[in-house]
Each structure stands twice: as structure tokens, then as C-alpha cells.
Amino acid sequence: MDEIIRLDNVTKVYDGGTQALGGVTLSLKDEWTTIVGPSGSGKTTLLNVIGCLDTPTTGTVHIAGKTVTGVNKAELTKLRRKHIGLVFQQYHLVPYLTALENVMLAQYYYGTTDEAKVVNALKNVGLGHRLDHLPAHLSGGEQQRVCIARALINEPTILLADEPTGNLDQTNGQAVLELIQNLREAGHAIVLVTHNQDIVKLGDRTIRIVDGTVAWDSALGGGDHGEQ
């Protein structure tokens, strides 16, 4: 397995002085990595840094062999388009665009649009019959599946998901998780944040973040799972 993401001694201090990450060193491969940890421990900040949505205060980040640290915002945008797919807890869709258009928007920013490919992607997430629906006319599970289709439409190297099932019921959550499992089979790297122990079991590797540092990493072993 190849190394896809590498963080070296990454810190993040927000403007207010809050230290969200306190020196994180990590190497992630093309597998399913689950991030767990208490609320406010820095999980979302970590995803932002990996996803090129935010820059670390110190330390270096490498995505797919490229050094991300020190590049300007326009470069970050390009890297994001090419390598990152994002799924959020609140299924963020543009409210005045249909399911089809929401997915096409990601293609549009990437360069070219291909409607047939989008239709296919929506069929793959079970929404072939909902192409022309506005987000307001889709259920939560359906909206989240549109988000997954959008995250994957440009075939990103990495899928980042921040509590993707947090707002879904059992059935819809299950459907979304199945989609993510398929992605792992297809060779994408997945980094998923969750509180749910059942979801943790689906992943290949678990990392526990506490107070902005790696408290436990299943790849390194250790008995207490970091839960003092």
C-alpha cells in the first residue's frame, strides 16, 4: 500500500490563540482510516488541513507526493479539485441547484462537464430517479448521497468525511456506509471522522485524537485505545 498523506509535526493555532493541533505526525495510506476523539479535540481541524481547506501554522503536509505547505490559495484550490472529495455532516448542497446540477458544479470547477457521467454517478448512489430534484425535495439520506456522488465525480485520491452519518437514520446511514466501503474496494484513501463505535469497526485503521495530538493509533498498537 502506498502512502497518500503525510503530516510532519503539524500544528494549528487559530487567531483567537486556541491551539487546535499540537504537533501531529501521521502517515496515511490508500485505506479506510477512522478518526475518533472527544468533541473539540481537533478532528475537524485535522480534516481541514488534509483537505487543503486550511493551512497549518507550522509543520508540513504532503498530499499524493506533493508538498502542500507554503503554496498559495490558488494552488491549494487546484490541489483540492484534483485530489480531495469532501462529505460533510450537514449535507451541503447549493439550494437553488438540482441534484444533477450540484454534482455538475464540481465538474464545472474542475474543468469540463459531462452530464452522462453525472447521471451515472447519481444512479450509482441510487438516485437515478431524483436527478431534477432540488435539495429541499430530497430526504437527508438522499442529500448525503448526492454529496457523495459530487465528492467522487472527479475521481479524487482522497475522500474526507466528517461524521457523514451523524444526521442520518439507521437505514440511510447504512446505505452511505456501503457506498464508502465500495470506495475503499476501488482503491480510494478514506479519512472518516465519527463518534459511532459500529462505524469504527468498518475501518482498516483507527486514530484517536485528544487535545490536538495523536493519543492512540491502531497501526502502532497499544492496549488502552488512548481512553484514559
Binding site: L53, R81, Y109, A151
Partner: peptide, 16 residues
């Protein structure tokens, strides 16, 4: 602003 952030997160540049 959330819509703008979202567009940027899925790859929109400042020009778009």
C-alpha cells in the same frame, strides 16, 4: 457565505 465556502471547498476559485 456557507454557499460560497461550499463552492470553494468543491473547487471554485476566486474568479468563479
Amino acid at each position: 457565505r456557507r454557499e460560497i465556502g461550499l463552492m470553494k471547498s468543491i473547487g471554485a476559485d476566486n474568479r468563479s
